[in-house]
Amino acid sequence: MPHIEARDISLIYDTPGGAVPGLRGVSFAMEASEFLCIVGPSGCGKSTLLNIIAGFITPNVGEIRIAGQPVRGSGMDRGVVFQDFAQLFPWRTALGNVAFGLEMKGVPKAEREATALEQLRLVKLEHFAKSYPHHLSGGMQQRVAIARALAYNPAVLLMDEPFAALDALTRDDMQRLLADVWRTTRKTVIYVTHNVAEAVYLADRVVVMTPHPGTVKTEVTIKLPRPRDPLSVEFLDYQKELLRLLGQDAKGH
């Protein structure tokens, strides 16, 4: 049985100009501990799809099943990381942010703080446990957000372009860190991005989406050994293939 299954998801947006199809007939399945990237241009509905999997939005047609159970609203079997740095609670320290989910679960203070500190160590921020988010850089804030989503030990990690607002160098570091975190924790990850190189670096498999309405165009399995070398010929070949599928390769070739 697949860990996560999207069955024929369709969503229609109600806009002032009338009903606009957002997603049509989106289906895919993934195994436990798989790293799946969803790539596509802006407006292809990839973030919407992630929000449906997270349970924030209910689709008009179809359903998401996680471990065989249909998704009804958000749940603690999933951790979510957003693109916006503002997702952290500014009134809580890094540690307080990471401990939030455990607090909601009713875990005693000492125990949840120990777990939260462990999670901060995983993203190499244990020395910033007592810092408030506004004293942390964008990359550090996103690392806290990852630790926060992992702290209550969900089986699934959902990430919506978490590094898109970071500078290129920080983004490279973050991708390496995320690959390490994934190797250590073996979560089932769905990662939305419009950055093709990022998808090739991180994913076991890439779902390519096209817009108007958002549909799955194809899937590409990345058969490269880890850790991956972004400068290798094979890596660049995968990048070219994805760009071609997205219709963004240099024209005339």
Binding site: A54, G55, F56, S74, G75, M76, R78, G79, V80, F82, D84, A86, Q87, F89, F100, G101, E103, M104, K105, R148, A149, Y152
Partner: peptide, 16 residues
């Protein structure tokens, strides 16, 4: 709204 969404995803009830 992202705080509410994040808190909801982490299992916060109406009281929390």
């Amino acid at each position: 709204p992202i705080w509410l969404r994040a808190a909801g995803a982490m299992g916060a009830n109406e009281n929390a």
